[in-house]
Design a protein around this nucleic acid. Sequence first.
DNA 1: TAAAAAATAGGTGTTTTCACCTATTTAAAT
DNA 2: ATTTAAATAGGTGAAAACACCTATTTTTTA
Lengths: 220, 220
Amino acid sequence: MLKDKIKVALVDDHVLLRRGLAGVIDSFGQYEVIFEANNGNHFIEQVDKFGEPALVLMDINMPEMDGFATTQWLKEHFPLINVLALSMYDNEASIIKMFKCGAKGYILKDTDPLELKSALDSIYSKGFYYSELVTGRLIHSINRMDEIENQGSKKSFLSDRESEFLRLVCTELTYKEIAEKMCLSPRTIDGYRDTLFEKLQIKTRVGLVMFAIKNGIVNP
Amino acid sequence: MLKDKIKVALVDDHVLLRRGLAGVIDSFGQYEVIFEANNGNHFIEQVDKFGEPALVLMDINMPEMDGFATTQWLKEHFPLINVLALSMYDNEASIIKMFKCGAKGYILKDTDPLELKSALDSIYSKGFYYSELVTGRLIHSINRMDEIENQGSKKSFLSDRESEFLRLVCTELTYKEIAEKMCLSPRTIDGYRDTLFEKLQIKTRVGLVMFAIKNGIVNP
DNA sequence: TAAAAAATAGGTGTTTTCACCTATTTAAAT
DNA sequence: ATTTAAATAGGTGAAAACACCTATTTTTTA
């Protein structure tokens, strides 16, 4: 090695994507993937073993410990490690939440390798990477900053019970059957639904399903 | 090059996964990725330019021309090219349909690189790769082979109109509003819904939404 | 060309979903 | 300790979704 390379870590539950990504990143020359992890918990173990990377490419939807929680954890324990979020979808809520959790950039999985390089370079030299996608979404959200403050700063923003409810909403059960499964009154379920409608600004069960999927609350 | 490598092509709309995959496959030694494509149409163009690969790694959910259609096209025009399906999800219907379209194997995107190599080796030497996943799903389906015959053999199994309907089902529009958008009577929409309920053995709109997502008819 | 299949559209009634109320009990914050 | 907020649960009515019919027109297939 002629000179020290910038250490990168990958966190994603898709092995093939991860390996692939590692190849792409190594091929850039000045970056070096020092380890990979399946999810947040695994990542934390790996940091102990392999030491701190300068940069982490972080998937959002992962089993056990997701990208939000892991990024938040990094912000608290290793604030100098920069996180570049890597997502399947370009939904506004995820972008905002990820930045709130401390990410320094946000790119999609169908990004061109060249843009990936730009992102890495930018984060390493300037400390952030704001793509057109990101700025576009943020500008679109600027009108309702208050809501974002409220939803983005909360750790999970959905209670365990709400997540459980959402998972059941994505099945063919009726609300009455969901109530039985959760050992609650149908009225309470009504309340859960209406609360989520309000929080997420949606009006139908289909809207709930789409939200749950986009945000990885259910795995389709 | 000491000896001729086995030519592989990649078809997937996620550039990073594709590039990564290419790296992994090239690293196996005896395989060589000769080109990549974003979707079926692009793939067909590329075959003209770069010649026939021996093996194609084919994503299922892609824009414009999906994995089913492309595999079917290959079966008709280049029956000697072997297709290994590459999917995000392990849903039974997709596996069966992909094999009906002529795929020789089916692996998930979170497969280990070693298993990918096994799959490639197996398809190249034996002409097929049946993982535990695949055989498991097929055994589970053995009781309703007749249904599979009927749904699997049809070219697309969903008409353009039905796909359009399904996309709208995944929004917060009511069926009446969907009818307006599609310039049809609400009754006709009722018919579309009931036909799909029957075909897919589901009973609710949520079921339709989940089906549409699992099968890439809508991008969440 | 005749028969079969698919796309279109209508009628009617039940169940589910949703909106808009109130109220109690428990947990959190001040 | 007191106020606030959150989880729980109930009532009612309108709209939407679903089930089960029939019937016409167009397209496919035999």
